[in-house]
Write a protein that binds this DNA or RNA. Structure first.
Lengths: 342, 342
DNA sequence: GTCAGGATTGAAACCGTTTTGGAAGCTTGG
DNA sequence: CCAAGCTTCCAAAACGGTTTCAATCCTGAC
């Protein structure tokens, strides 16, 4: 059942039927109802492909996922972000198209998406220091919003980010206030922008109290359970072990905790941990009361909002770049306590 | 730059240009080269929307993700599967479109996808006992492949699954051979097909040795760290605790391990654990040597292959339903050892 | 030199919508 | 009673490709 059939069926022209269905004012209310009813009766749905060609809009937003030789975006955070963004898209009649490409073809993927007209806009994931994708997308001329920011980029662009610096600064202060002086940072890869900002927050907070950060207590790598475990174990074995850990991810923290258990150290008493909690759907920080003290910010909600921003940008292409900075809340769990007196 | 412009530019008809680019045989080799060169020079890429309308094919495969009140598909396994499937799609010039919808609208989502012509095929995730989606998709008439199976469905359908029953049977036998008699099963939700099959494998293996499964040692819930932790702790505290755990997911196992540590039990000596390892990219079971003894099967590879199957089905709509049963390998890690003699 | 038949190319229809530019029919006010 | 102005509808032209059908150009056989 297509528009033309429906039209002849009703004794109307395709034009009128189209207008009736799309809510144009110049159609008689009674005929509109007649059309609506007929459409429902034949459960007619307009063909997306035709709409797209006729309107020149793709009604879709693209997410490019580089399949990596090195660092992968395909991580737990990504899944929840996508879920959040997807909610927004469905609500607004947009499709979400994922492009999984080898990372050396990422630039070409964006170019393709634009010149084939597959999508109307893009969400950029996991921005890095001085990320080249921003200049690229600007050149290509595709509306885009960055989830995160790219330190070092001079041009204006739209982004949504968590205030990573601030949240890690506060977390560090919280530990300092508890008397901790040897605080370890288990961070993500520090060419990722969020990791850089978290590190800055950490270092700033220490500096404000006149503490020189100890390189031996600053670890940066992929955020896996294993890396967290090994880094923490290493530090705990050292001559001057940390009394607290600031951990960039729940998963790394699982490893840190394992190291603690292995060393016979009690969480919250012997050693404190603060994590960043993205509120992943399958890695809750406790069901009722939080297990870990954490800087918390829902990545799913970030997905929802970033998607809203990109839809807004698509609808108003001339709008200047927008940005949103979400504040993570510091929630107090059972994983922190006063620094043990030696 | 569109086809018509390119054609006039070359002094050719759109027909010829189209044919040249699409590799039709009836075009002179030299003109083809001329066309190819011009296309590259002007970096012309055909408009997806036009192709889709003209050919009637969407060149896209859909994945519907119900956003759940209850169980969510948005889980770590899903991300890796998607990444694998996405690889296959890109390689074949297909798009992947994700539809995130409230779970009570899932059926309608499939219907829409079909009648609007947004996709040419579907991959069905997380099948359950007697899953209604199979009958629905068959009725709707959209080619589809199920990742997993749906016990109880009588109609034939295409699927790709891991031999869950067999792998858990083998794992159980392995533990039995090590002398374990009280083996706990930490399973996923048992309305999910994979969980049912794993349970069956577990129970069958016990039965074959004349062991009556103890309901107190069989746990079924969402596979989170927290649930795993609590279930294991409960069991370990009981009067007659298990000496081994068979765990359906790496994440649950992290919780089980935490419970062990908390009880002061040494993994592999006091208590053995076998997990199912989906080879998630960010939750590796050890970098070099496996930490856990595991039934291993790459969900990413499953994604690749399932996608291949659906593309094949789209290309050959009259083919009878296909299926692939992948065998998980049993890899020996450091988490299993002989049952402790009382 | 002619002609059949393959090799190339092109004109035009088509895919299913939206949208532009009228054109009827009906009011309405002078 | 008529022109102006609304309403309400429609024919036809996009949108940017693919595909059918027909036309032209060669080539070699006779």
């Amino acid at each position: 059942m297509n528009l033309k059939e429906l039209a002849t069926n009703l004794g109307l022209s395709p034009t009128t039927v189209s207008r009736a269905l799309n809510g144009y004012p110049e159609v008689n209310e009674t005929t509109r109802e007649r059309v609506m009813a007929a459409a429902k009766r034949h459960n007619y749905l307009p063909n997306t492909r035709a709409i797209r060609l006729a309107t020149g809009r793709a009604m879709a937003v693209g997410h490019v996922i580089p399949i990596a030789t090195k660092h992968e975006i395909v991580n737990p955070v990504f899944a929840d972000f996508i879920a959040g963004a997807g909610e927004t898209y469905s609500r607004n009649g947009y499709d979400m198209v994922l492009s999984v490409v080898p990372d050396d073809q990422e630039a070409q993927a964006y170019r393709d998406l634009q010149s084939r007209g597959t999508v109307d806009g893009i969400i950029v994931h996991a921005p890095r220091l001085d990320d080249p994708r921003i200049a690229l997308l600007r050149e290509v001329g595709l509306p885009f919003v960055v989830h995160g920011r790219a330190t070092g980029t001079k041009d204006a662009y739209s982004w949504l980010d968590v205030n990573n610096r601030r949240s890690f600064q506060r977390a560090t202060e919280f530990l300092l206030d508890l008397g901790h002086r040897r605080i370890a940072l288990i961070n993500g890869l520090e060419y990722m922008d969020f990791a850089i900002r978290r590190r800055t927050g950490f270092v700033d907070a220490l500096a404000a109290r006149g503490i020189q950060p100890d390189p031996a207590l600053m670890f940066s790598d992929e955020m896996t359970e294993g890396r967290g475990y090994r880094a923490a174990l290493e530090m705990l074995k050292s001559r001057n072990p940390p009394t607290a850990f600031l951990v960039s991810s729940m998963i790394s923290a699982l490893g840190v905790r394992r190291a603690l258990d292995e060393r016979g150290l009690k969480l919250g008493r012997d050693v404190s941990i603060i994590i960043h909690d993205d509120e992943l759907s399958y890695l809750r920080n406790g069901d009722d009361v939080p297990i870990y003290t954490a800087t918390r910010s829902s990545v799913r909600e970030a997905g929802r909002q970033t998607a809203e921003m990109v839809l807004d940008l698509i609808a108003n292409p001339d709008k200047p770049p927008q940005s949103r900075l979400l504040e993570a809340e510091l929630i107090i769990g059972q994983s922190t306590g006063p620094a043990p007196s030696k």
